[in-house]
């Protein structure tokens, strides 16, 4: 399912003295099956963009196209259930939203809410719990007896059980240790491939964006500052650094090397292997002089 934002503007508390402009003139296409990363500071508007992706917010100007539905400011939207099912959002700290007595009931809550039978919902629970890398036995446990990392996986299984076409992830690894972070990100990537999902990752982590995303969108002060592939985005890291954004460690290191050696490497490196090869080449260059 394609999602597209066309010149979207959103004002919180519009037409009141508290009106604040959160995003303006935001146009982004999220074609089906692609992995997008949205990056920006706290307050750059990325969460506001996220809430347009399944019509939690209606734009104050512009058009949001979600599959064949058009969401504008003009008319009140009805029957949003289907959109909400097809665009699954994993919010920050999703484990805070667990509430049922057992893991199984918690996972079944979403699908049953969308009219799936109990039997089918349980089947989905069994399927998705495996997809998030947990054993089936956990279904009968209380979610509150699990570790933080397990709770997060259960919450994610709850979103997957609705069988969405688009998965929107809001800082899905916040608070996890490095291994947990790696495992969760790898899991999403695998699901993205296996289920042919569209994935939209909202993150602070340039590393994750560079590693997984087909396209990166940088938000700044409510606008799209830049959009492109990792290579395009990090070809000129200076601009990002000026905005106070991180660049991937590899890019940062490359910059330091280039500055010290007073010359550019032959390309923008995004992996450790590329960079060390380039450095080796650079050092060898010293031999020839």
């Amino acid at each position: 399912m394609d999602i597209s934002l066309q010149q979207v503007e959103y004002r919180y508390q519009a037409n009141t003295p508290f009106e604040t402009l959160a995003i303006q003139d935001v146009s982004i296409d999220f074609p089906s099956g692609q992995y997008y990363a949205i990056i920006g500071h706290t307050g750059s508007g990325k969460s506001t963009v996220l809430q347009h992706l399944n019509a939690i917010l209606r734009p104050t100007k512009g058009i949001v196209q979600i599959g064949d539905r058009t969401v504008t400011n003009e008319k009140k939207q009805k029957n949003l259930k289907e959109i909400r099912r097809r665009v699954g959002i994993v919010f920050q700290f999703p484990e805070h939203q667990l509430f049922e007595e057992t893991v199984e009931k918690d996972i079944c809550f979403g699908p049953m809410n969308f009219g799936v039978s109990e039997e089918k919902a349980k089947e989905l629970a069994r399927k998705t719990i495996k997809q998030v890398g947990l054993p089936e036995e956990i279904l009968s446990k209380s979610p509150f007896d699990l570790s933080g990392g397990q709770m997060r996986r259960v919450a994610i299984a709850g979103v997957l059980a609705m069988e969405p076409d688009v998965l929107v992830l809001d800082e899905p690894t916040a608070g996890l240790d490095p291994r947990g972070r790696r495992e969760i990100m790898e899991m999403f990537y695998r699901l993205h491939k296996e289920r042919n999902l569209s994935t939209i990752l909202v993150t602070h982590s340039m590393e994750d964006a560079a590693r997984y995303a087909d396209k990166i969108v940088i938000m700044h002060q409510g606008r799209v500052y830049k959009e492109g592939t990792a290579e395009e985005i990090f070809a000129s890291p200076e601009g990002l650094i000026e905005l106070g954004l991180d660049v991937p460690e590899v890019v940062r290191f490359q910059q330091k090397v280039e500055k010290t050696f007073g010359k550019k490497l032959s390309k923008i490196c995004l992996t450790l292997d590329e960079l060390t090869d380039e450095i080796k080449e650079l050092l060898r260059g010293g031999d020839r002089k």
Partner: peptide
């Protein structure tokens, strides 16, 4: 142990592996 190593250590190691 579920942890990680700082980037500068990672790249030192890689450079050594590549004979630097």
């Amino acid at each position: 142990l579920g942890l990680d190593i700082p980037f500068s250590v990672k790249i030192s190691k890689k450079l050594r592996e590549k004979g630097i």
